[in-house]
Simulated scan of single mutants.
Amino acid sequence: MSDFQNSGPILVTGVNGQVGFELARTLQGLGHVVAADREMLDLSNLDQIRTVVRAVRPAMIVNPAAYTAVDKAESELDLAMRINGEAPGVLAEEARKLGAPLIHYSTDYVFNGEKDSPYVETDTTDPQNAYGRTKLAGEHAIVESGVEHLILRTSWVYGARGKNFLLTMLRLGAERSELKVVADQIGAPTWSNTIATLTAHVVAQAKAASDPAQWWHERSGIYHLTASGATSWHGFASAIFELAKLDRSPSVLPIPASEYPTPAKRPTNSQMSGDRLREVFGISAPDWKDALSLCLGSR
């Protein structure tokens, strides 16, 4: 196992994305960060992945990059599978050859959303759309590679940049007096900064370990990393306008998901328990509304 305290950089993919942008900043001070955008490291090009990893020789790979167009994945399955399913496996294989651990991000969409309580890491997976199937394939590829790894499943990711529900609501709210938002799908809106900050806390623990190889070996696995608490998309939208303190806010009307059909089926219940993350690493995410307030305050 490479000791990334003393040798090799931390390779972060997708640094122009919501989570990657934050990771490139929160990981500073924990090692030299090589921030790879799509031009440097395109996950749809598996040969390029091998070339870049072998050139950089990272002591750790952190992979937030993904194909995230959930509805488009239904018609671009091959591309989504290459980026979400095959690329993580290649990263894992190259990391294992270097003795470097891999941190990878997955999704609540690996579940069918029919459970009536928060999902735990050992619950049976049953993705209901192409995006979820490709992300689950990536999880399996990482585990099967034998690399030391953390797979962090998150949900309803938003931030002050990129394409996400928060920015869509703020844009539409400025254009319309009334918005209809789905009220019968439940989850935990999770700020991209929260994900990156908690990731950095975990990396700091690994860095401080007396035996990093043993530390990683004992903790490798899947963890759920989402904000605490839960709400509906309607509740999320309502909170956005409550906390944004706009001069004029639209009316937000609740509708069932059946009134807003999408190419990809969404889980009814996207709640995931953070108990394992807290028990193993002693960290937990803030309440979703507290994090949203911080995010809006930083815009």
Results as ranks from 00 to 15, higher is better:
residue 174 A to T: 12
residue 118 P to W: 01
residue 87 A to W: 05
residue 181 V to A: 03
residue 98 L to E: 00
residue 147 V to S: 01
residue 47 D to H: 12
residue 58 P to V: 06
residue 213 A to V: 08
residue 56 V to C: 08
residue 61 I to N: 00
residue 33 V to E: 00
residue 67 Y to W: 10
residue 90 V to R: 02
residue 15 V to E: 01
residue 285 A to K: 00
residue 130 A to D: 04
residue 51 T to R: 13
residue 48 Q to G: 09
residue 243 L to W: 04
residue 154 T to Y: 01
residue 279 E to S: 14
residue 93 E to P: 06
residue 47 D to G: 12
residue 281 F to Q: 06
residue 265 K to P: 04
residue 50 R to E: 07
residue 219 R to N: 09
residue 96 R to S: 04
residue 96 R to M: 08
residue 244 A to C: 08
residue 19 V to G: 05
residue 73 A to P: 01
residue 120 V to D: 14
residue 24 A to N: 08
residue 284 S to M: 12
residue 150 L to R: 02
residue 20 G to L: 04
residue 251 S to H: 15
residue 156 W to T: 12
residue 113 G to I: 09
residue 235 G to E: 06
residue 149 H to W: 09
residue 144 E to F: 15
residue 282 G to N: 07
residue 160 A to H: 14
residue 21 F to R: 02
residue 15 V to T: 10
residue 12 V to P: 01
residue 185 Q to E: 10
residue 235 G to K: 04
residue 246 L to G: 09
residue 19 V to Y: 01
residue 238 S to L: 04
residue 21 F to V: 03
residue 68 T to W: 05
residue 255 I to D: 06
residue 66 A to M: 00
residue 100 A to F: 10
residue 34 V to A: 01
residue 270 S to L: 13
residue 190 T to F: 02
residue 269 N to P: 03
residue 220 S to Y: 02
residue 190 T to D: 06
residue 45 N to H: 11
residue 37 D to W: 13
residue 7 S to W: 15
residue 217 H to W: 13
residue 112 N to F: 03
residue 244 A to R: 01
residue 94 E to T: 02
residue 86 E to G: 07
residue 256 P to N: 11
residue 133 R to F: 06
residue 38 R to M: 12
residue 98 L to Y: 00
residue 123 D to L: 12
residue 43 L to E: 00
residue 207 K to H: 12
residue 172 L to F: 11
residue 39 E to F: 13
residue 187 G to K: 05
residue 25 R to T: 14
residue 41 L to S: 08
residue 254 P to G: 00
residue 218 E to P: 14
residue 86 E to F: 09
residue 77 L to K: 15
residue 227 A to L: 01
residue 111 F to T: 08
residue 38 R to T: 11
residue 92 A to L: 10
residue 187 G to L: 06
residue 252 V to C: 07
residue 164 N to V: 04
residue 6 N to C: 10
residue 94 E to C: 03
residue 293 S to N: 15
residue 182 V to D: 05
residue 164 N to D: 01
residue 271 Q to S: 13
residue 132 G to L: 07
residue 109 Y to W: 13
residue 253 L to Y: 10
residue 68 T to V: 12
residue 151 I to F: 05
residue 270 S to D: 13
residue 250 P to D: 07
residue 161 R to A: 11
residue 26 T to M: 03
residue 35 A to C: 10
residue 24 A to M: 12
residue 40 M to A: 14
residue 47 D to S: 14
residue 11 L to I: 11
residue 45 N to E: 09
residue 20 G to A: 05
residue 287 D to F: 02
residue 108 D to I: 08
residue 265 K to V: 12
residue 36 A to S: 05
residue 38 R to F: 07
residue 36 A to C: 10
residue 167 L to P: 02
residue 181 V to T: 04
residue 247 D to K: 12
residue 169 M to N: 02
residue 16 N to W: 08
residue 145 S to K: 04
residue 217 H to L: 14
residue 288 W to G: 01
residue 254 P to L: 06
residue 35 A to N: 02
residue 166 L to M: 07
residue 160 A to Q: 13
residue 279 E to Q: 12
residue 256 P to E: 09
residue 193 N to S: 14
residue 180 K to V: 08
residue 112 N to Y: 09
residue 185 Q to P: 05
residue 215 W to F: 15
residue 61 I to Q: 03
residue 258 S to Y: 07
residue 252 V to M: 07
residue 197 T to I: 11
residue 145 S to D: 04
residue 279 E to C: 11
residue 141 A to H: 04
residue 272 M to F: 10
residue 128 Q to I: 14
residue 244 A to F: 03
residue 45 N to V: 10
residue 159 G to W: 01
residue 167 L to N: 04
residue 185 Q to M: 09
residue 73 A to N: 02
residue 174 A to F: 12
residue 195 I to A: 00
